[in-house]
Simulated scan of single mutants.
Amino acid sequence: MTPLLEYKTLVDVEDVKHLGVIVGQAFIASASESESFLKSVGFENLRVICRDGKVAGGLATLPMGMWLEGQSVPMVGIAGVGIAPEYRGGGVAIALIQNMLQELYAKETPISVLYPATQQLYRKAGYEQAGNYCTWEISTQDIRLNKPPLSLQPIADLNCEILHQLYQQQAQLIHGYLDRHSSIWQRLTQSEEKETVYGYLIGKQDQPEGYIILSQHSQANETVIQIRDWVVLSHGASQTFWSFLANHRSTIKKVTWQSSIIDSLTLLLPEQNAKIKHQKRWMLRIVDVCKALQLRGYKLGVETELHLAVKDDLLTANNNKFILSVANGKGEVRQGGKGELQIDIQGLSSLYTGLFTPHTLKLAGKLDAPDTALLAATEIFTSSAPWMADFF
């Protein structure tokens, strides 16, 4: 007899307790840590899957946006995917993800993003690599920029609106940045029991040009500044960013921060001493092909048309031919056309963000197209490398 699986969008208090235990065990966290995470997300954003009436697993959905070529595309981030050990390997995880995607499609969500614990599961559901998350590090002795051109002001309240405004100014310029969920802001700015979070505005109080949010740690006999979040909106702010960190060299050995795989901040450094300490790729799923292609931005000056034939075994409305017309930085989509560029929903995710070029995707067997369609796709989707500073 096939076990009965039930996907639930309205999660009651008892279900949340069970999910907290499952998530805690899955991510090697304490009960209080997993409970705190679930509360920060909001119970209305939790989803569980039950087998024969018992909670077998669940996940958190984070409604937010992703900045792509200057436009914030509505996006749902997926976090805290956990399946109880006794139910693993029985198809519960893929059923959970597929049900969640069908729910997102019904709600007209264009795209979904997650960080995979395993790519195989999420590829089965149509996700694919779409952008980078990199942690950099440098010794404070190697920075050697000691005179900040701008002043720094300590921030008493890290929940202040000016931080959100400065972040948005930077975010809309970075391909792949998040239009953040409140739980991400909370995690970046909240001090913990053994950790204090500090914040500094860069520039004048009434006209700041950036900020730094950081905490300090002692790891394996090394003292470290962990930059939790940063914004620099001018050359002076970039110089002040590095000068501020260099002036910690008497007590701090090294600094870590999140940035792109090619970090323009390091251009200010005297030598190539900054290194990528950790790098991984997040995955994206096109949930609604029409909405995803219409709502992202496109480079000004590009005026062309692309005929796609998309294969999607799960969300069958995407399993169709589409014509994407791009002009004046915007895209229009209609069904039909010649279907010259043949691509599955996974390959479309990598193409959509520009992580890989159409030519590279063709070599990898992710798409097939004549040269004219490849050229149009290259014009439309080639961009700066997509990345984000947030992990969720």
Rank of each mutant, 00 (worst) to 15 (best):
M1L: 13
V16W: 03
L19C: 05
G20N: 14
V23Y: 06
Q25C: 08
F27C: 12
K39E: 14
G42N: 11
E44M: 11
V55R: 07
L62E: 03
P63S: 06
P63T: 08
L68F: 11
V76S: 09
G77I: 12
A79N: 06
A79V: 10
E86D: 14
Y87N: 07
G89V: 07
G91P: 05
V92Y: 06
A95H: 12
I97G: 11
I97H: 07
T109G: 13
T109V: 15
P110Y: 03
P110V: 05
S112Y: 03
L114E: 02
A117E: 13
Q120T: 15
A125H: 04
E128S: 13
E128P: 04
T135V: 13
W136S: 15
I138P: 13
Q141T: 07
I143R: 04
K147F: 10
P148D: 01
L152Y: 02
A156H: 08
A156R: 12
L158W: 00
L158D: 00
L163A: 10
H164C: 01
L166G: 09
Y177L: 01
R180I: 03
R180H: 05
S183H: 02
Q190I: 02
K194C: 10
T196H: 08
L201A: 02
I202Y: 01
K204N: 09
D206M: 01
Q207N: 09
Q226W: 08
D229K: 04
S234N: 08
G236Q: 02
G236I: 01
G236Y: 01
T240F: 01
F241M: 11
S243E: 02
I252M: 15
W257K: 05
W257A: 10
S259M: 09
L265M: 15
P270D: 04
Q272K: 14
Q279C: 05
R281V: 06
R281Q: 14
L284H: 05
D288H: 09
C290R: 14
L293S: 04
L293F: 06
L293I: 02
G297E: 00
Y298G: 14
L300M: 09
V302Q: 02
E303K: 15
T304D: 00
K311E: 11
D313W: 00
L314N: 06
N319M: 08
N320L: 04
I323C: 01
S325E: 10
S325F: 08
A327F: 02
A327D: 02
G329R: 06
E332C: 09
V333E: 07
G336Y: 00
D344K: 04
D344S: 04
G347N: 02
L351M: 04
T353K: 06
G354R: 06
F356I: 10
F356A: 06
P358N: 05
P358R: 03
P358T: 03
P358A: 02
T360D: 03
L367T: 01
A369P: 07
L374T: 00
A376H: 09
E379Q: 15
I380Y: 12
F381P: 11
F381Y: 13
T382H: 12
P386Q: 07
M388V: 05
F391L: 14
F392W: 01
F392M: 12
